[in-house]
Design a protein around this nucleic acid. Structure first.
Lengths: 166, 166
DNA sequence: TAACAAATATAGGTGAGGCTAACAATGTCC
DNA sequence: GGACATTGTTAGCCTCACCTATATTTGTTA
């Protein structure tokens, strides 16, 4: 399986997403979603058909093959993980988180992705809510004020209660 | 100034970096560094000359114009900031950190970059060394063990001393 | 069912960024 | 200073992902 271009992966992911919304996927849907013209979609889809990732009859609907769906699922999962990072840690809005996730997904190394995923997992194992340090980061992000505690184990006045945990 | 392609930005950054190593920059240097053939470099450089970002005499050395250097400096600074994030927070090796920084630099939104920068700054204002939570993350990253404290304010046995700070 | 609207496909073009092969300029060394 | 290696340029070709204009097919509806 020759390696797919970033753009082809975008097409694949979009088909997957539209399909999982129980919608039938047409050329026009992809064109609208991806912001391109129909002939562009036809061209890219033609390549994906040749790669055995997409099925489409002449003038018919577009669907993923087994292989296509498997690959698309992986891609969408990766994108979701990145999106979580951008939303939950960097506090970006949903749309911006998605946009960033979608575009950088193609360019980061596997290790880098693993690390970002680990970061999100770390958040989860830190407890149900967000850990204190993340609250402090958010506060710093939006106000510019430094976090209430200075160095490990050193509390600022009146922070004994708040600063007991990472 | 029409917006530069990601690839052109790579060329610009590479010229800047080679130039700041006090090296004279030749077509061949760029070709080797960027992993392409000379005619490709000539083609891209030709575009950068048209944009007024690069100077080069026929069969001569390549250098940045004032505008080119200004732009390149910004690009390299952004890349450095991202690299810091990948190295210091995600604990990637220098080369992988650089590779990721270099490629995603073109694709993240300005806000996203600001947030990543803020994250690094947050680390700095947290104190001279790395904050406890980052140590905990690294430990989690490399061992899979959850952090020693569970929820804000709740210590695990024997963790009263270690877990007093984020 | 014929006509028309909407969707898809084809033909052909563009620009970016690659390539090879061939040619031109430069530099080095005897 | 001539020969040869190195480097830069040109010419010409490729692929990808876009475009417009036009043709074809399908769906709807009078």
């Amino acid at each position: 399986m020759s390696t797919l271009s970033a753009r082809s992966e975008d097409y694949l992911k979009t088909i997957y997403k539209l399909q999982s919304e129980r919608k039938v996927v047409r050329v026009k849907d992809l064109a609208v979603t991806l912001g391109v013209r129909s002939p562009t979609v036809v061209g890219v889809i033609s390549g994906l058909k040749d790669s055995g990732l997409v099925d489409q009859e002449h003038y018919g609907y577009i669907s993923l093959t087994g292989a296509g769906e498997k690959l698309a699922r992986t891609l969408v999962q990766n994108e979701e993980l990145l999106k979580s990072f951008f939303r939950e840690i960097l506090d970006l809005g949903p749309d911006e988180a998605e946009a960033n996730a979608c575009s950088i997904e193609h360019y980061i190394t596997p290790t880098c992705r693993e690390r970002l995923v680990a970061f999100i997992r770390f958040l989860e194992v830190c407890g149900k809510g967000s850990p204190k340090w993340l609250d402090h980061f958010r506060h710093f992000l939006h106000t510019g004020e430094p976090p209430p505690c200075d160095r490990c184990g050193e509390m600022l006045p009146g922070e004994e209660k708040k600063c007991t945990k990472e």
